[in-house]
Amino acid sequence: MNMLQGSPWLLAHRSMLKPNQPMKVSLYGQDYVIWQDSNREIHALPNACPHMGAMLSEGWCVAKPDGTSTIACPFHALEFDQTGSTVLPGSNKVTKSLLKPLELIIQGDLVWSYGGVEPETPIPTVLDEFAAEYEFAGVAGHRSIKTDLLTMLLNMHDYNHQNGTHRPLFEIERVEFKQFIDQGFRSHAYYDMPRAKPKLQDILKNPALLAMPKVLEAHLENHFPAIVIFHGEVPIGTIKQCHIFVPESETHTRTFVLVFGKFKHPVFRLMKNNVLQLVETVVDQDADILGKLYPETPQHIKLNNEIGMDWVRRNFESFPEVVEPNLSR
């Protein structure tokens, strides 16, 4: 299955990597262990120990006096450095590299990779721009979803599902689509979502609902295939929700959301956790519906405003080239 090899994928934000604690990531059907040492250097190796295949991500990091660290296998405590070399028991000699490191591209707090594939498209700069201008609020909705990359992207660019999938809690009544701007592998979608009055029990669960306007004015900025940005203007300030997608395998896609904000008053920073909780709810709702689809069902109905889905299908089929038609309207 096509996983758009040659695209840059955002594997993690630095805040997701606690110093000297291994984390498992997957890309193109290959599992890796990724870790950050005390020098803030980030490394990644194939996750299977070359001895008997134990998961290195289930092991631990061994910190060294110079700030570097090795990853220790949980089975026999063999330590592998960032080059994939180890020292066998009873030997003082370092082996040749037994694990090929995954090439990482570190840009500030962002950890990118092409997964060992020749690059076809450049790394987007939009997240670096947000990091320079806005306060980083945190990461939300980090999970692996049992769905292929194309199905995940079609869901994220289905502008009709807001008043269905996301009706609970947000009480979205309908979607009023306004404009779609097609810029090849980049696009913008604008639509309004009138909301019913939130229920008291929902407000008690998350007071951030009180900061949401009666009509949500949505601006989605899309960078194919890996980033969908929801630009939000709410009474507490400006919010940028950056939804990230990583093709773990043919059947699973990992997602997480980077949230940036510009708050109008210092007291509103106290609501960051409430904003992150709302984002968690959005991801939970999407994950729930994606787990209840029959993905092979032929589509005999086409709704209005499926232009975002058409944009995804066109780019998916033509990647790495952008072909007509231009879908702006």
Results as ranks from 00 to 15, higher is better:
Lys100Ile: 04
Lys100Phe: 00
Lys100Leu: 08
Leu102Lys: 05
Leu104Ser: 02
Ile105Thr: 10
Ile106Asp: 04
Gly108Val: 05
Asp109Ser: 14
Asp109Leu: 01
Leu110Ser: 08
Leu110Arg: 10
Val111Asn: 00
Trp112Asp: 09
Trp112Gln: 05
Tyr114Asn: 06
Val117Pro: 00
Glu118Thr: 15
Pro119Phe: 01
Thr121Val: 12
Thr121Ile: 09
Thr121Phe: 01
Thr121Asn: 07
Pro122Ile: 04
Pro124Ile: 02
Thr125Pro: 00
Leu127Ile: 11
Leu127Arg: 06
Glu129Tyr: 02
Phe130Cys: 08
Phe130Trp: 08
Ala132Phe: 01
Tyr134Thr: 04
Ala137Phe: 07
Ala137Trp: 10
Gly138Arg: 02
Gly138Ile: 01
Gly138Pro: 02
Val139Ser: 02
Val139Lys: 06
Ala140Ser: 08
Ala140Tyr: 01
Gly141Phe: 01
Gly141Ile: 01
Ile145Val: 07
Lys146Ile: 03
Thr147Glu: 06
Thr147Trp: 02
Asp148Val: 02
Asp148Arg: 03
Asp148Cys: 03
Leu150Val: 01
Leu150Arg: 05
Leu154Val: 03
His157Ile: 06
Tyr159Gln: 12
Tyr159Arg: 04
His161Leu: 12
His161Ser: 10
Gln162Ser: 12
Asn163Glu: 15
Gly164Glu: 14
His166Pro: 09
Phe170Ala: 14
Glu173Asp: 13
Val175Ser: 13
Val175Arg: 07
Val175Pro: 04
Glu176Phe: 00
Glu176His: 09
Glu176Arg: 08
Lys178Leu: 15
Lys178Ala: 13
Gln179Lys: 15
Gln179Phe: 12
Gln179Met: 13
Phe180Asn: 14
Phe180Asp: 15
Ile181Tyr: 09
Asp182Lys: 09
Asp182Ile: 12
Gln183Ser: 14
Phe185Ile: 13
Ser187Asp: 10
His188Lys: 15
His188Asp: 13
His188Tyr: 14
Ala189Trp: 10
Tyr190Thr: 11
Tyr191Val: 04
Met193Lys: 12
Pro194Leu: 09
Arg195Ser: 08
Arg195Gly: 08
Ala196Met: 09
Ala196Thr: 07
Lys197Ser: 09
Pro198Leu: 09
Lys199Arg: 15
Lys199Met: 13
Leu204Pro: 05
Leu204Met: 13
Lys205Ala: 11
Lys205Tyr: 11
